[in-house]
Write a protein that binds this DNA or RNA. Structure first.
Lengths: 246, 246
DNA sequence: CGAGGTCTTGAAGACGATCAACAAACGTGG
DNA sequence: CCACGTTTGTTGATCGTCTTCAAGACCTCG
């Protein structure tokens, strides 16, 4: 039985925690009791700027966000995030981010003060471990993206990404069927995979010839997730989507 | 004033924590009081295997270790680790790793039971946050490696790596001068940067023409760190090497 | 001394970048 | 509702980077 069955902005966040471990009613209450402030952004706005002293962390309530590092040769997107992701939990302890968080679609976020998070970490050691865990999964996602760029070819890498987003969205209950929105421009994809815009366009054309996936207009359909996963070498293990005492 | 000025195997670990925040004598004592068991490995041995249920985490006491993911096209090394790194702190909460940890040189590690870590996290919330922080820095290192592979050219990427290892080793007091060991084979470097062995060989030849860096026989000398950093676009910010309340 | 691992070099070809032109989609204001 | 400009996506041609294959040098350790 869940407390707060009512619609609450932080519901997807709590779902994402419950996927990985049971929480006590008190712990769930503690999360829902976090005071927050909602802020919205339009596409391409920077939501959190690198090297800024931070006093708030943000949970993505709606939209798609990305982590961006700017190098000489252009922008590198190191990860993309969907609703429910506590995108900026890193900032709680890092105090200054090493990268920018940008809105890749219109976004709304909940800002939660670090002071409140200190409170959680002092009072709820187990809940703290589950939050910690969620940042460890972010690192695992980075490792898969490294493998995508370093050791998978572009078309496999893109299918791998689609599989990952599909599973991540499913795990927090965002979609029912095989179709989900992924409103990234080809420019975004180029920066995500370290390729040129032109090459992404050609790779997408190739990808559209595959029978088990449709990708266009910012919408992806995995007509056969299993075939897609086999094609891309995707295994959901790294997302750590199993309930276990932490 | 430090407790335990005597030589203790976990000294580099404690140094690496103290770089980022003050710890109370009780917190330091709690770390030094962790029971551990030392294990040694030869080059190329797998120290932690992916998907194995874990009950211990390991701190690297000596040697160089790497995180490896195996894909169709070969191995991807996502990070390399030096003495003092709590390489396997992830495993404490993930319970199963998504990758292998391999010895890239002869290594010795200290195994620390998850039970003991639970104890720390229940009793020492602030120390827990500092440990959490160290895993967040690992993620930041992954992001830089993504930028290396995706948006820097190979020679810049390799100089960036040299700068990073130089700063990381300095920060835990491993070296005095501009020279440090980096016993990676060209094969390891290829897997780290997602390139072929042959191309690494040629890139190293180019790199050896640079005046501010020497790299050969597994030994790197940064005759001018500043020039190297400027060349590679390296800034140590992401390593979060500043003392601050967490 | 021989064997295996490591490194170097050359040559050929695949892959992806860049430049350039154009098409399609979208949003805005007239 | 259309006209227009801007953003996004497509295609072709050329060029540079990196891979692959192959051969040989070097090195270390039994």
């Amino acid at each position: 039985m869940m407390h707060h069955d009512r619609v609450h902005a932080l519901n997807p966040l709590v779902s994402s925690l419950l996927v990985r471990d049971r929480l006590t009613p008190e712990e769930i209450e503690a999360v829902f009791a976090l005071p927050f402030q909602v802020k919205t952004f339009t596409r391409d706005q920077t939501m959190v700027r690198e090297m800024e002293q931070l006093h708030f962390s943000c949970v993505l309530l709606d939209g798609v966000a990305g982590r961006a590092i700017y190098a000489d040769k252009g922008r590198q997107l190191t990860a993309i995030h969907v609703a429910g992701d506590w995108i900026d939990l890193h900032g709680f302890l890092l105090k200054k981010l090493d990268h920018n968080i940008v809105a890749l679609s219109p976004c709304s976020i909940a800002l939660i003060s670090h002071r409140a998070l200190i409170g959680i970490s002092e009072e709820f050691p187990h809940l703290t471990r589950v939050l910690w865990l969620s940042t460890l999964v972010d690192a695992a996602i980075h490792r898969q993206q490294l493998t995508n760029i370093g050791r998978r070819n572009p078309i496999e890498a893109m299918v791998h990404l689609a599989c990952e987003i599909y599973v991540r969205r499913k795990s927090v209950g965002l979609d029912a069927g095989p179709t989900f929105p992924l409103p990234l421009t080809q420019n975004d994809l180029a920066d995500l995979f370290g390729l040129s815009l032109v090459h992404i366009s050609r790779t997408l054309r190739e990808l559209r010839a595959l029978p088990f996936i449709q990708w266009g207009q910012g919408i992806v359909t995995l007509t056969s997730f299993d075939e897609a996963a086999a094609f891309a070498g995707f295994s959901p293990d790294y997302l750590n989507l199993f309930e276990q005492p932490r």
